[in-house]
Amino acid sequence: MKEPAIVLEHVSKTYRLSHQPYSSLKGILLSMFRYRRRIELHQALRDVNLTIWRGETVGLIGVNGSGKSTLLAIIARVIRPSAGTVHVNGRVAPLLQLGVGFHPDLTGLENVYFNGIILGLTRQQVAERLPAIVRFAELEEFIDTPIRAYSSGMVLRLGFAVAVHTDPEIILMDEVLAVGDEAFQHKCLRKIQEFQKEGRTILLVSHDMNQVRQVATRVVWLHQGQVMADGPTEEVVSEYLAFAEQREREIS
């Protein structure tokens, strides 16, 4: 039986963008003397309706600024929608970008604890999974070294290793696979396939259409905050590529 993992109903998100961002006192004082505030509303998402079923791997594609990351942030409960409702069934684990949540002065081990706990594990659970995490990251020798001595690939492996060992039901990936070498990408893909077999739900934002073709079972194409197309991978990807090509021709 199909069970919904994520249900979005009429979700909209409006950002308030001010051309003169009031990030300083000077800005506020100056703006008081101006006739009116220049605040522009930017609709990042417009009335998005989307149901993602348990076990699906959904690729989110679209040009820059189409609302993919906003959608992911709303599902991760980091941003609240301006309108509409969001239902998420199951534990969500966002895969963090390179080095986010890591402290350079702390050792790999200390960072694993912090990262695991912030992703919702208990200290006990991190301790139990520690050997598996370290093995997956291939950092047995360096786990007691401060992160600042790591290469970016090592940091990436460690972050990925923690995230995949949090036993998430829903995994959010925002361009995380773009970095990392060939071997690491292979490892990640294998892990994704393993997750797929286990019936976990994966949401993947990517500009790499080959990667999307490789893993996604369904693709949602966002354009200017709206769902342009939603369906089987090959269909939507080729539609999107045709669109992108035409746009490129128009520009040149």
Binding site: A76, R77, G101
Partner: peptide
């Protein structure tokens, strides 16, 4: 802020 933008807590 980078963590705040990605993870719920």
């Amino acid at each position: 802020i980078q963590l705040v933008k990605k993870v719920y807590f």
